[in-house]
Amino acid sequence: MKNDTFWRYTTLMPAVLLFVALTVVPMVNLFVLSFHHVEWIERIAIWKSVGWSNYTAAFEDNLFRAGAFNTVVFAVVAVTVQMVLGFILALLTIGVTRGRTFYRTVFLLPILVPGIIIGAIWKLMYSYDFGVINKTAIFLGMSPQDWLGNPNLALASVIVVDIWHWTPFCFLLLLAALESLPQDIYEAARIDGSSPWQALRFITLPLMLPAIIVTFVFRMILALKVFDEVYLLTGGGPGTSTEVVSFTIYRRFFTEDRPGYGAAISIITFAAVAILIFVAGRISRRRKAS
């Protein structure tokens, strides 16, 4: 079985090498960096050890706090709406065969567009003075809204863009899952006299749960990393109303050139994500066990 061992290592090695070289090593660097303050004097980087002060500062950082809060709100609201809308659309349209190819092509389109373009388009469409949305509102006799400049509306406006961007994707995945459900169960349920609502509640939802979870996780991961769209849409403003974590990190780390502090908030974000995954894993394992 020597051959087996050889191939076992050879097949896994490329992935491990990539991960170690490009994620573990930088992450360790980042960790070390997070306990330092870096200054440049006469072209030489001076690393000053500052203990935990970068971490304590992070908890007082209003941008970082707002960013963390908004990111969670953004991800949870956007992804939930996408899932619900996608699911409703899938329920409504299951069984449509005419124009299938056309619809699939159309619904795949949005994921092909770079976020930076999406940000630019929607910024123009949201524009107070000449945006197509306000023009339509005025045409319909409503008063124009300051979609991106009003602190109470800005985050919602950004979320709408994300919903536009990703609902079609959720819809396609959920539709495929729905179509793969065994139809004879529904026949049996109908003969038993259960209402369509009961069928949905007690048959469709439980059977769809794995697909729903997978789609949800897939989207959640991308939503927590949101950057490009916010970048062009609002730049985090007005105030801190659309500040998101990757944006705060970018700004603190690079724009303000505070690598030590930027590293600390990166590590905090990283740790929070790791804990989240660990807890979610625990819960799902316990549920499986029971």
């Binding site: 994620t23 974590v245 780390f253 974000t269």
Partner: peptide
């Protein structure tokens, strides 16, 4: 551990590592 690490890495904004990659 490999899957967990890859999942965690996948969830972290890529911008956090971009600077380190440039230097490397």
């Amino acid at each position: 551990s490999l899957l967990a690490w890859s999942l965690v890495f996948h969830m972290v904004p890529p911008i956090t590592l971009a600077g380190a990659w440039f230097t490397m």
